[in-house]
Simulated assay, not measured.
Amino acid sequence: MLIGYARISTILQNADLQHDTLSLAGCEKIFTDKISGTVTERPALTKVKEILRRGDTLVVWRLDRLGRSLKDLIDWMNYLESEGIALKSLQESIDTSTATGKLVFHIFASMAEFERNLIKERTMAGLSAARARGRVGGRPKKMNEDKRKLAVRLYNEKHHSIDAICEMMGISKPTLYSYVKSESRNLEIN
């Protein structure tokens, strides 16, 4: 069964072009979301996922109707492939029910992975260069060392509740626990 999915970003847009094209492609059912592609929860797309069965083909007008990023598309492709469902994009002429269509899609996926690895390498090189110049990075500590030690001392004395200590010091529980853990590591080292 061919199942169509259309998406328009705003209520002011019209999905007629996508509907007409999906109908001409032979879609028996067409589901439409009127929502931005950046929104994760799309009711019509969720419904499509529920009704798709092994051997079906999900048909979209363009790939960007299905996912906003290449990662989204790859996630969808992996899901569809694992369920035995093909993907067909009419504008890009991609049909993963064919060997050529799968190849084209996997080339896109490989390029996306390559791009992610390049970004990671550049980021690591930038951080190394910054460290070599004495920059540490990260968010600055909320409290100076004396206040951190006071918070840990109050915690260890057990005269105040965790909530009271956090309120007095103006910190969250995870921050307090982080200070306590850090202080205990410092004691072990010394």
Score class of each variant (00 low, 15 high):
165 I>R: 02
151 A>N: 01
35 I>A: 01
29 K>A: 01
177 Y>S: 03
107 I>T: 06
96 T>D: 08
37 G>C: 05
165 I>W: 04
132 A>M: 10
166 C>T: 10
29 K>H: 04
113 E>H: 02
46 T>N: 06
23 S>M: 07
50 E>L: 01
135 R>V: 12
66 L>P: 00
36 S>Y: 10
175 T>Q: 13
53 R>W: 03
63 L>Y: 04
103 L>C: 08
119 I>N: 05
80 L>I: 03
148 R>E: 11
94 I>V: 14
22 L>G: 03
164 A>L: 13
152 V>A: 03
35 I>F: 03
20 D>N: 12
125 A>R: 05
141 K>G: 12
176 L>T: 01
46 T>L: 09
62 R>K: 15
1 M>T: 04
31 F>M: 03
117 N>W: 09
77 M>N: 13
173 K>N: 10
164 A>M: 11
101 G>N: 05
125 A>V: 07
167 E>F: 12
20 D>I: 15
28 E>I: 07
41 E>G: 04
133 R>T: 03
56 D>F: 00
167 E>I: 14
173 K>P: 08
88 K>N: 13
3 I>V: 15
33 D>G: 06
173 K>Y: 10
21 T>I: 14
145 E>L: 13
170 G>I: 11
55 G>T: 03
8 I>W: 14
3 I>S: 00
176 L>A: 09
17 L>V: 15
158 K>E: 13
170 G>R: 04
51 I>W: 02
157 E>Y: 13
90 L>F: 14
59 V>T: 02
86 A>R: 00
134 G>L: 07
136 V>H: 14
119 I>M: 10
165 I>N: 04
38 T>H: 10
23 S>R: 15
43 P>H: 01
171 I>Q: 07
186 N>A: 15
170 G>V: 08
126 G>E: 03
68 R>A: 01
130 A>Q: 05
65 R>C: 04
92 E>L: 11
68 R>N: 00
16 D>W: 08
111 M>G: 12
121 E>K: 07
86 A>V: 07
165 I>D: 02
160 H>C: 10
132 A>F: 11
139 R>I: 12
143 M>R: 15
157 E>Q: 13
70 L>Q: 10
4 G>P: 08
170 G>F: 14
187 L>R: 15
102 K>T: 06
172 S>N: 04
23 S>A: 14
8 I>Y: 05
185 R>F: 15
170 G>D: 11
178 S>V: 08
159 H>V: 11
126 G>I: 08
102 K>R: 15
31 F>I: 00
93 S>I: 12
88 K>M: 14
81 E>Y: 07
84 G>V: 14
118 L>Y: 09
153 R>W: 11
116 R>D: 08
131 R>P: 02
7 R>T: 01
135 R>W: 10
154 L>S: 01
95 D>T: 04
171 I>F: 09
146 D>I: 12
36 S>D: 00
